[in-house]
Simulated scan of single mutants.
Amino acid sequence: MQRIRLRYTKRGRLRFTSHRDFQRAFERALRRAEVPMAYSAGFTPHPKVSYANAAPTGTGSEAEYLEIALTEPRDPDKLRELLDESMPVGLDIIDAVESHTSGLADRLTASIWELRLDGVEPADAARAAEAFRAAESVEVQRRTKNGIRTFDAREAVVRLEAVTADEALAHDTDRPTDQPCAILRLVVRHVTPAVRPDDVLSGLRAVADLAPPVPAAVTRLAQGLLHEETGTVTDPLAPDREAATAPPVNDGAPAAAATASAPEGPA
């Protein structure tokens, strides 16, 4: 069985698709591309697809991940092209690697998010971010199926800073560019309970009275293993690429290379 790990996006209006909507679209793409999928056992077999830490409905993303299991080997790059052609525009398959390591989900420990705050002055957003960082804790509330839950949104935030429009435009993300706005970049640890971008926005309202006049446009730029020293995240597919190009490991058998004898010189 071959396992392939894929990175995909949610762009434009497709950011409003739910995770279930994406699952249906992806399974149709698998059938159109005639991917030799492995299936689960039982009375209702399902294709073996593992989804990892999907973004909330309504948020864009440049870094969603999943893994599929195949019954026959396929070239990851060609498979990516076939699947991408079969997916709706906006749900784009942008990367594929063969799995050579375990624990993809374990390498998704943090996310980089970008929040576009239309109608907010950049200076006001920068002051609010500074107040959030300075706070020891920022309690916010979220409605759950068990009622209202209160938790600290500050502890999970590794970085929070205002960025310029030019810095934001360096990323191919879903945002209009025809009007000025404030843009915040944040790095958030994946903790329990999960701290989402809207929780951080609630925290900014609580500590600095920052209330955008329209809903923020939220995009996940990356997710991966958190680098504690720099506060950034690393590519979770990098270990698989490195394993694929690494030289084969010696199995411990003694080398059979013979040493040639030097010719004898004249007496």
Rank of each mutant, 00 (worst) to 15 (best):
Q2I: 08
I4R: 02
I4K: 03
R11D: 04
G12L: 01
F22C: 06
A25D: 11
F26Q: 10
L30W: 03
A41W: 11
S50E: 15
Y51V: 12
N53V: 14
P56R: 03
P56L: 06
G60R: 09
L70H: 10
P76K: 04
E81V: 12
D84F: 14
P88K: 07
D92G: 02
D92Q: 09
I93H: 00
I93K: 01
G103T: 03
A105E: 12
A110G: 13
I112N: 05
E114M: 14
E114L: 15
L115Y: 00
R116K: 08
V120G: 08
E121W: 02
R133A: 14
R133S: 14
R133K: 15
R142E: 04
R143D: 15
I148Q: 13
D152E: 02
A153N: 12
A153R: 06
A153F: 07
V157H: 03
L160H: 00
L160I: 06
A162L: 11
H171Q: 12
D174V: 09
V188P: 09
R189F: 05
H190E: 12
P193K: 03
A194F: 01
A194E: 09
D199P: 07
S202C: 00
S202E: 07
A206D: 05
D209K: 10
V214Y: 03
P215Y: 09
A217Y: 05
V218G: 00
L221R: 15
G224W: 01
H227W: 06
H227I: 12
P239T: 03
R241Y: 00
A255L: 13
A256Y: 05
A256P: 04
A257E: 14
A258S: 09
A260V: 14
S261R: 10
E264M: 10
E264A: 13
A267G: 13
